[in-house]
Amino acid sequence: MQFGIFTVGDVTPDPTDGRTPSEHERIKAMVTLALKAEEVGLDVFATGEHHNPPFVPSSPTTMLGYIAARTERLVLSTSTTLITTNDPVKIAEDYAMLQHLADGRVDLMTGRGNTGPVYPWFGQDIRQGLPLAIENYGLLHKLWRTDVVDWEGRFRTPLQGFTSTPRPLDGVPPFVWHGSIRSPEIAEQAAYYGDGFFHNNIFWPMEHTRKMVGLYRQRYAHHGHGTPEQAIVGLGGQVFMRKNSQDAVREFRPYFDNAPVYGHGPSLEEFTEQTPLTVGSPQEVIERTLTFRESVGDYQRQLFLMDHAGLPLKTVLEQLDMLGEEVVPVLREEFARLRPAGVPEAAPAHPATIRKESVRGSS
């Protein structure tokens, strides 16, 4: 089981003092959190991709390449790579380059994002969002697996005798997750290719998540990739912790109440009851996260959102200490104990990372 954090890179005022970090501060803070994630023993750091204020991560591979140079074990990923508005050729090149620089410690999550205006900014039509996602990923998949590509589709100019460079490290493309909250077509796409399916369930009830993951598992087996239980599943999560649960609720409430994405809506208590958001003690986070397995079965990756809504960097670093020291070790043990034989423990790793770990372990 892999555990990690993902960031959406929002630049949000701290509601307790009104201070807004600069873009420079926020970018540097995201790097600090990635380094902290490795320090406390997490497995994955993932960044979103946005091209509009109040978000800053417009160039995920730039950030992840910088983090790769400063880490040794951390898997570097995205919590969205915009498959609809990025050219698949550029995605193929950028992530293959990152794969080489990071010695294989790279995967990515394709998605359509949640910002409608991004489509015309990049010359696309939001009404074609799903066809774009399907066609563009089909081309990306081919570019990484075929040295010389001839291709023609609806949404970009044809390719004739084209080779994307660099080629994937050791001929093994980065592992791909297909991220979606609400589109069964994307669950089907993930299943068709035998890729991973990531449901970022931070805003939705677990019943909805259960249905989406269940569909993906059924279709994964239908397409001949293995049993439903062997399908590669990832979940999002959202937590805020203090030693005492009452202190956690009191401290997090002003951030929740004013957050751009869900502030001024349902109360904190209503939201935690209806969604996987957990605000409380480390033990409460452990207990709540273990219940996810009851809804979706044994899964391979759990990412937590922790650095949003204006929370100060110091506070988020404290959260990562608790996550790495008190929560994840227990979750690792419990998920491993409950996992049946034959069910993958994690997403497929690049052979280069496996070789490196073997050398490190024998030294």
Results as ranks from 00 to 15, higher is better:
Gly4Phe: 13
Phe6Arg: 00
Thr7Ile: 12
Val8Arg: 09
Val11Cys: 11
Pro13His: 04
Pro13Asn: 05
Pro15Cys: 08
Asp17Gln: 12
Gly18His: 04
Gly18Val: 14
Arg19Val: 07
Arg19Phe: 15
Pro21Asp: 11
Pro21Ala: 03
Pro21Leu: 05
His24Cys: 03
Glu25Met: 12
Lys28Gln: 15
Lys28Trp: 00
Thr32Pro: 00
Val40Gln: 08
Gly41Thr: 05
Leu42His: 12
Leu42Glu: 08
Asn52Met: 15
Phe55Leu: 15
Pro57Met: 10
Ser58Lys: 06
Ser59Met: 04
Pro60Tyr: 06
Leu64Asp: 12
Ile67Cys: 01
Ile67Ala: 06
Ala68Asp: 15
Ala68Met: 04
Ala69Met: 07
Ala69Phe: 11
Arg70Glu: 07
Thr71Glu: 05
Thr71Ser: 14
Leu74Ile: 09
Leu74His: 06
Val75Thr: 14
Ser77Arg: 09
Ser77Tyr: 03
Thr78Arg: 10
Leu82Ser: 03
Ile83Ala: 09
Thr84Arg: 03
Pro88Leu: 09
Ile91Leu: 14
Ala92Glu: 15
Tyr95Ser: 11
Ala96Asp: 07
Met97His: 09
Gln99Val: 04
Gln99Cys: 03
Leu101Gly: 09
Leu101Pro: 02
Ala102His: 08
Gly104Glu: 10
Arg105Val: 07
Arg105His: 13
Val106Phe: 06
Met109His: 05
Met109Glu: 00
Arg112Pro: 14
Gly113Arg: 05
Asn114Ala: 14
Asn114Arg: 09
Pro120Glu: 04
Trp121Ser: 04
Phe122Glu: 01
Asp125Glu: 14
Asp125Lys: 06
Arg127Met: 05
Gln128Trp: 02
Gly129Trp: 08
Leu130Phe: 13
Leu132Ala: 02
